[in-house]
Write a protein that binds this DNA or RNA. Structure first.
Lengths: 335, 335
DNA sequence: TTAATGTTTGCATTCGAAGTCATTATTACG
DNA sequence: CGTAATAATGACTTCGAATGCAAACATTAA
């Protein structure tokens, strides 16, 4: 009969007529215990409903088995998939996700204090802006950090990132097949590092393609901002030939706005490309030409790098770049 | 100068010339410490980079400050919003989210063992199927559980749920304005409790509305399944007048399939309603008439109920039902 | 049978903060 | 100024599992 109150290893030990150490050893893999003791302990443990207390174990082993995952609200629409992948893959390596969400920049110090407090084995930051002094803080405590989808040139940071440059190059190559004259780049918000990177790359590559007429607009990654930006632009300007959106969601907004309020047809009047390859980008009504991020591979890489650095704290920082897949939709005019 | 190795309360105590208890008291709110000691301790603590070890604190106080959130992969598309709300609201109450994702039914026992092991203060289950013996398990350990969007009639469980019945009634009322003859109910998967509930309610209410011709189809909540189900149906049957979809995503699939492959116009040929009020349901191309779940309120309620039961383990189980808002889109024919 | 080796086992200690309790310092007040 | 009341403090114990160490036991070789 299982009791209501917490059962400890001592209780089991007493009941089974062995020492507490014996009980502990039974529940630690690979330790020397005779089959007889093992069976006896397991039997009484099951009977009493005993489970080792992870907290006590953490304290003595100095390994919490928890990884802090920081998610910024700025995070991409595909973050649920990322998060669920992270959780799954960490679980496979016997680690749990301790979730920290981050909306305002206020309380950021507090947040980082919290994370340190919890003695996590490592940190994965999803699209969160990480100043280098924060990285240093974790470094000092020997807590490895992996930045997901962040290219930090300066830093000694571990990063796992989709190859934005290569992806955007492919997208522009698609667009260029029609020799568009007027380009619009619809960037994500200025305080998003990914957005800034994608925008700058687009600008750079367009220059390389010898495109003259490029205008930049700033949205906030949302559907509505896609609509609003296009609407505002068209108030005072002619329609562009091609629009490069920093993510799919804004591309969808752009398409809806063009069709609904301006009688512009996609792709015949305007070609639109997105980025990310979110589920809805493939929906019939949009069929966006975009770059699909290799989420599963990215996460696998992130987890690998993190675990490598947990096990071997002195291994040098690593930056992994994975290439996404060009999805040829129906939002770019065929030549 | 902060040292590289972990700084404990003893280190700070020694340095500040006080006892370890004093340090502990400084970092616990509301305990009796003189201003002088407090300042002294705070100063040296900051200087040494000391932060209390949450793990040690958990062990002695028997409060982990962590809430297990179980997310099933079956979970709705709006779960990222739910999850981020949960995290935010728990953070406001000084609790953290320990995330457990659940894909296959395998390893479910293992998962629950894990959760118990971590000594979480409570559990929130998002759309996860929870057999009553599992509930009993947590009950035995006095760990309160809140089921999010689950109506468990039998159970002594805490539940927070959107009012499906009232919502679906409103949707049917909308549809009935055109007196449709043939209804199709596109249900979610049979192993989802929410899906089953929504389907059964729809069937029951249609009967109440004296509708004769109702057929049931089963999808898996996905866009593609919406398309496939409609396509398969139309192979051998005439188009229905109205389709009640168990979620918005399938409704979107249905709409795309109807338009693309069958030259059916929404809403003139078929009226379609969804459920959830996900972001994309409001997009120009779909504008689905649906019920928007009051996610923020639901989460607030869930967190409230959970904390109430953490603080007062003997309070009776609570079932909160919140009503969603009818969104009148453009997917139902106007009379 | 004994020595030598390997395997199990229990004792005692450890992890780091919190809380109990008795003691000392401080304040309030007659 | 003395005494009661209160505030502040430190010594010591606690939470529950893991582990170094030495003793006990089992196994093999000689």
């Amino acid at each position: 009969m299982a009791k209501n109150k917490k059962v400890t290893s001592y209780d089991v030990a007493r009941e089974a007529g062995v020492s507490q150490s014996a009980v502990s050893r039974v529940f630690r893999p690979g330790l020397s215990v005779s089959q007889k003791t093992r069976d006896k302990v397991m039997a009484t443990a099951n009977e009493m409903g005993y489970r080792p207390n992870a907290i006590a174990r953490m304290l003595i082993t100095k390994q919490s088995g928890m990884v802090a995952v920081i998610v910024s609200s700025r995070a991409n629409v595909n973050y649920p998939e990322v998060l669920s992948q992270v959780s799954k893959q960490l679980a496979a390596r016997n680690k749990r996700v301790l979730l920290f969400t981050l909306d305002d920049v206020e309380g950021l110090d507090e947040l980082f204090e919290q994370i340190l407090t919890f003695q996590v084995d490592g940190v994965i930051a999803l699209a969160a802006h990480f100043e280098s002094h924060r990285l240093a803080q974790f470094e000092k405590h020997e807590i490895p950090v992996v930045l997901y989808n962040r290219n930090v040139s300066d830093a000694m940071a571990n990063t796992v990132c989709c190859n934005h440059e290569q992806g955007i190059k492919q997208l522009i190559a698609e667009l260029e097949k029609n020799n568009p004259k007027k380009y619009l780049v619809l960037s994500g918000p200025k305080d998003s590092d990914v957005a800034n990177e994608r925008r700058e790359i687009a600008i750079k590559l367009l220059k390389q393609f010898a495109v003259k007429d490029v205008s930049i607009l700033y949205g906030d990654y949302s559907y509505q901002s896609g609509r609003d930006c296009l609407a505002k632009w068209l108030q005072h300007n002619p329609a562009p030939d091609a629009i490069i959106c920093s993510n799919d969601t804004m591309a969808i907004g752009v398409i809806d706005e063009a069709r609904e309020n301006h009688e512009l047809h996609i792709p015949n009047d305007i070609s639109v490309v997105g980025f990310d390859g979110i589920t809805s980008s493939a929906w019939q009504s949009y069929q966006i030409t975009t770059i699909k991020q290799p989420v599963e591979k990215l996460v696998k890489a992130a987890v690998e790098v993190l675990l490598e650095h947990i096990e071997n704290p002195d291994s040098p920082p690593e930056a992994r770049v994975l290439t996404g897949a060009l999805i040829k939709g129906n939002s770019v005019k065929r030549p």
